[in-house]
């Protein structure tokens, strides 16, 4: 095994494999005519994302990703789908007109070109390799949250509270 990460074949293979699954699933998320299927494809993307986080050495974030996204947000989506009585099975009305899809695809493509140009056009970026030691400990993260980023952390907790109350107020029948 070479010391340079770029030559770590197993990890590269893992990356490309997961990335391919993610991109494929993501495309299905935005093209599937079935709302429930789209939500399940989203699960695939999110799990793949957790895998990428592990490859990047961010295990805590990977765990959070699984817990919050796959565990909570997707369930929330499924509830939303049920409560709004979406048509089970394929529903042709989930997409906009072809013209608007073309516009959307065009805009997305332009964005991709711009970002790709930015990534590959920036000098030195394309040779940068990830460092070898990159396992992040939970202790480091918590130290940072509770010292440097204490105020944003508190703000986030207030935001969550506000979202909680807001969601109740909005969705409650009165």
């Amino acid at each position: 095994m070479d010391t340079v990460w770029g030559d770590n074949v197993a990890q590269n293979i893992a990356f490309y494999l997961i990335a391919a699954i993610m991109v494929g699933a993501a495309i299905k998320v935005v093209t599937s005519k079935n709302v429930v299927h789209a939500a399940l494809y989203l699960v695939a993307v999110l799990i793949g994302m957790a895998g990428q986080f592990i490859l990047l050495g961010a295990e805590f974030i990977a765990a959070t990703q699984l817990l919050v996204y796959v565990g909570a947000i997707v369930v929330l989506f499924l509830f939303g789908i049920m409560l709004t009585r979406a048509q089970v099975g394929s529903d042709p009305d989930v997409d906009t007109t072809a013209a608007q899809r073309t516009t959307g695809g065009f805009v997305a493509f332009i964005l991709l070109v711009v970002m790709g140009y930015a990534i590959y056009g920036t000098e030195g970026l394309s040779e940068t390799k990830l460092p070898e030691e990159r396992v992040q400990t939970i202790a480091e993260v918590s130290d940072s949250i509770f010292s440097t980023y204490l105020v944003p952390f508190e703000a986030i907790s207030v935001l969550l509270l506000a979202a909680l109350i807001g969601a109740i107020v909005l969705a409650r029948r009165d």
């Binding site: 997305a108 964005l111 711009v114």
Partner: peptide, 20 residues
């Protein structure tokens, strides 16, 4: 809303391109 969103994203893409 979506038209506004297209315009926003399109504008952002063009601006980003110009800046880059």
């Amino acid at each position: 809303i979506r038209q506004y969103a297209s315009l926003m994203f399109g504008g952002a893409a063009i601006l980003a391109g110009v800046l880059i």
